[in-house]
Nucleic acid binder design. Structure first.
Length: 856
RNA sequence: GGGCGCGUGGCUCAGCGGUAGAGCAUCCGCUUCACACGCGGGGGGUCGAUGGUUCGAUUCCAUCCGCGCCCACCA
């Protein structure tokens, strides 16, 4: 491997320092192409990484630095093991956050119905937002994100990510759009994507459908309202139900109770009358109704929650929708030409007070009406209950019937579970998150969004002579034409003038869910369609690094897409990183105002120091933000500089490694190499670092101190030669073991005496470390162990007696148990400043101090 | 309600069947020829609780308590 007997010039700095190493080495690495990917290599020589693209419209925070460092450690390790590492960087600029930022920054709004304007330039300061076409809007998004991406790249470089910066991608770029649209068309051809008009979870502020994966529950104040429904004419009296959403009474289509509930069995098959609106609705039986909840009988509305949707579907009930896409109650006409009721004027009068209101306002209004009519029994009972929200939204989700695109998921449940078992998880227990999610899937994946900045669906529809759009016969482009934007491009056989007119065509107005694109990152980075040769060399990839909170979204959807498109896993390993927790054990996030600027941290502690802290967070473990750990990392880096300066201060003479301490040190170093390699292979970078670090400190505190005197030539040239030769092997090995964690300081030291980059040198193997001592020397390892223990004992006694470290001991008597150190007695006596050494059958060490302290 | 993870010295964390470890903090000492961005040393814990298995448990099993996260059809 590295031949340390080469004559090489050694250039030691007078006073080594960490300052400035980041920019020095970043530019050197860039100039020398240190991390350049070599695409001529075969698949088995390549280690490919499906890098998560950070959202560029936000800012990088400590959590990014943390998890990206983990990936970089793995990447550097694999590179040194001889793999060509495919390590691109992506930017997630697709989606809502960018859309909002561009709207504010340029003062524009997107209107997909407008035609593209070439050479469009946004006005300097528009008085009001101007409307522009979707392609123009996307151009502006691209323009702005380019600026954001520069800032990101600068930070990543400063942190020392060994990314090949000639390979970057963006989730809205042409390649991403082409991959997304092509994959979508193929899903469609295979019958794995479909379009459906159905009740869908809907955010009333974004005015878009959202997917199950984007939901979160939030606890909200609410109240149970006990209401009475009049029984039909045949059996006078009332039925009482409880609801948290009384405003949906006009949307009520039935009552439901459990089939075994004897209280309500007599009512099944009969009709009751809704309060205020006088609508006769049937009483139904369904097993989902819980006799324990409320009064045991519930009202079914279209639609108050997902259970309503189930009941509505399974009981074949009609639709009475009252909430519009913007969340307001829509106008409804009761009576002869409108909705069914027994009392049209009364129903209309009641409803008129709700029309146009938000659900929240409608609720308080209807409670008043119910009180007045006497249909509210008692006072509402306040409760706190979980309510579904879009994770980025501010108001509770509604369920709106609309036409949406879906990708089939539920019929692949078993396949997904099997893929989850096939995937190697780090840590393994994260697999449960995926299983949990897959088992809880309640419907197919809704992938269409009624937004603008995203990948459009590559679909048009014919418009009939009557002007009605025929969704059942979509017009599809050729794959070769992709990507297209149906809001400006024209389907084959039509002209632009036929857009949205009878006998013409109409473009699908929607864009894809951001995860519908992100789920193809392996295909996008591997240039699936544009460069099949490259794709074959990197896919399926080796590693997906990501955080645990997006297992249900990013990880799940990527596995699904690869399964459907390639019948394989997208990667063989998933390394799940935890979060960075602030001192209050909460996730660090911008909204909590506790985020520290990453660049400031890197400058304060040095990138190596910060990386050291990051690497102390085990895979999957949430980790405390600890500046102390960064200081420790920085200290370690300093120690490396100084230890190296010592080792390289005098490298001659050199020769056979014959001294027991030198042989013992190398023997345990080779064991360390074996352990560290095993742990890194298993993605346990933390343990590998811990062990390397422990060895290194002991190496400095004991080994270097013990051999110092001999190394300076006090016992002749052979002894010095043995020490020098051993130290060079140790330094070379330790630098390489630390290189994935502390890329800057290790490269700096490497440059003092070795050619090339430490990051391109081969990872050490146990055999090379002990090559010069015939494969290891256990006996000498025992000698070293006893010498270290004895030196520790002497130090303790000196410290307790408050003697200087250099205090000379005229005679030392050691317990017989330490006698195995004898082969290294010379080194030991020199390090401990002992003139005469003896062993007796005693428990405690005995020291007779000499008068002078500097006679050594 | 289900699942997962975690509870070890003041703090951050290792250990995981054989009478407790590290770093930081704290205290004491040292201008030692690689390093004062340093070196050496001391003190400090009945390993969340209770049972069980075992010759022996912080380590295995069960139950419970606390913290966190994920998931759930939440009228």
């Amino acid at each position: 491997m590295s031949d340390l007997n080469d004559a090489h010039p050694i250039a030691l700095p007078e006073k080594p320092a960490l300052e400035g190493l980041e920019s020095k080495w970043d530019s050197r690495w860039e100039a020398e192409g240190t991390y350049r990917f070599d695409r001529t290599r075969a698949r088995h020589e390549i280690y490919s990484i499906d890098t998560p693209p950070p959202t560029v419209s936000g800012s990088l925070h400590v959590g990014h630095v943390f998890s990206y460092t983990h990936t970089d450690v793995i990447a550097r390790f694999q590179r040194m093991r001889g793999k060509v590492v495919f390590y691109p960087m992506g930017w997630d600029d697709n989606g809502l956050p960018t859309e909002r930022r561009v709207q504010n920054y340029y003062g524009v709004r997107c209107d997909p119905s407008l035609p593209y304007v070439p050479e469009f330039a946004p006005p300097d300061k528009p008085e009001r937002p101007i409307s522009i076409s979707r392609p123009n809007f996307i151009e502006l998004c691209n323009r702005l994100t380019v600026e954001d991406e520069k800032v990101f790249e600068q930070l990543w470089r400063h942190l020392g990510l060994s990314v090949d910066w000639s390979m970057t991608y963006a989730t809205i770029d042409r390649g991403a759009q082409r991959a997304s649209q092509t994959a979508f068309l193929r899903l469609l051809q295979r019958g794995q994507a479909y379009q459906l008009e159905a009740p869908t979870l809907w955010d009333v502020d974004f005015r878009s459908a959202v997917a199950q994966a984007e939901l979160e529950d939030r606890d909200r104040e609410g109240a149970y309202h006990r209401l009475r429904f009049a029984r039909g004419p045949s059996s006078p009296g009332f039925v009482e139900i409880e609801t948290t959403r009384p405003e949906l009474i006009p949307a009520c289509v039935a009552l439901v109770a459990h089939p075994d509930d004897e209280r309500y069995q007599p009512l099944f098959g009969t009709e009751v009358i809704t309060p205020l609106f006088g609508v006769p609705v049937p009483v139904k039986a369904h097993a989902l109704a819980d006799p324990e909840k409320g009064s045991g009988i519930a009202m079914i509305c279209t639609f108050g929650d997902l259970t309503d949707v189930t009941w509505w579907r399974e009981l074949s009930l009609p639709v009475r929708a009252v909430i519009q896409p913007n969340g307001a109650f829509r106008p409804v006409a009761w009576g002869d030409r409108g909705w069914e009721t027994t009392d049209a004027p009364r129903a209309q009068a009641a409803y008129d007070q709700l029309a146009g209101l938000s659900p929240e306002k409608a609720r308080s209004r209807i409670v008043q009406l119910l009180r007045e009519s006497g249909d509210l029994i008692g006072d509402p009972r306040p409760i706190t209950h979980p309510v579904k929200f879009f994770e980025k939204g501010d108001r509770p989700l509604e369920i709106i019937t609309s036409r949406q695109w879906f990708i089939k998921t539920t019929e692949f449940r078993e396949a997904m579970l099997e893929r989850g078992r096939e995937l190697k998880w780090h840590p393994d227990y994260m697999r449960h998150r995926l299983e949990n999610w897959v088992n809880g899937l309640s419907g197919d994946w809704c992938v269409s969004r009624q937004r603008f900045f995203g990948v459009p669906f590559p679909v048009w529809y014919p418009v009939g002579a009557d002007g009605v759009v025929d969704y059942s016969r979509p017009l599809l482009p050729d794959e070769a034409a992709l990507p297209i934007d149906p809001s400006t491009d024209v389907p084959t056989g039509y002209t632009a003038s036929q857009r949205d007119v009878p006998n013409g065509f109409s473009g699908d107005p929607d864009i894809m869910d951001t995860w519908a694109t992100s789920s193809l990152t392996p295909q996008i980075t591997g240039r699936w369609l544009d460069d099949p040769d490259l794709f074959g060399r990197v896919f399926p990839m080796d590693l997906r690094p990501q955080a645990h909170d997006i297992i249900r979204t990013w990880l799940f959807s990527t596995v699904l897409r690869a399964h459907l498109e390639h019948d394989s896993l997208p990667w063989s390993n998933a390394a799940i990183s935890g979060w960075v927790l602030d001192p209050d054990r909460k996730k660090m996030s911008k909204s909590k105002g506790n985020v520290v600027t990453p660049m400031a941290l890197l400058e304060k502690h040095g990138s190596d120091g910060v990386r050291y802290w990051a690497a102390s967070g085990r895979p999957g473990a949430d980790t405390a933000f600890e500046e102390n750990q960064m200081k420790v990392g920085r200290r370690l880096a300093m120690k490396l500089l100084n230890a190296a300066r010592f080792a390289l201060g005098a490298t001659e003479p050199r020769g056979a490694i014959v001294e027991p301490l030198d042989r013992g040190m190398l023997t345990s170093l080779s064991a360390l190499v074996e352990d560290a390699t095993r742990h890194l292979d298993a993605y346990d970078y933390t343990r590998a670092l811990e062990q390397t670090e422990r060895f290194f400190w002991s190496f400095c505190d004991f080994y270097l101190e013990l051999v110092k005197s001999r190394r300076y030539g006090d016992f002749g040239p052979e002894g010095a030669a043995s020490a020098n030769s051993a130290m060079l092997v140790a330094l070379s090995t330790l630098l390489r073991l630390f290189a994935p964690y502390l890329p800057f300081v290790t490269e700096e030291v490497w440059s003092w005496w070795r050619p090339g980059s430490v990051h391109r040198s081969p990872w050490p193997v146990p055999g090379e470390v002990v090559a010069a001592i015939a494969g290891g020397d256990r006996q000498s390892a025992v000698v070293m162990e006893h010498a270290e223990r004895a030196l520790g004992d002497v130090r303790r006694i000196k410290a307790l007696q408050k003697k200087p470290v250099k205090a000379v001991i005229a005679r030392a008597v050691l317990p017989m148990a330490l006698q195995p150190l004898m082969p290294a007695a010379r080194d030991f006596q020199a390090a401990a400043h002992i003139r005469e050494l003896a062993f007796e059958d005693i428990e405690e060490i005995r020291l007779d101090f000499a008068e002078e302290s500097d006679a050594a």
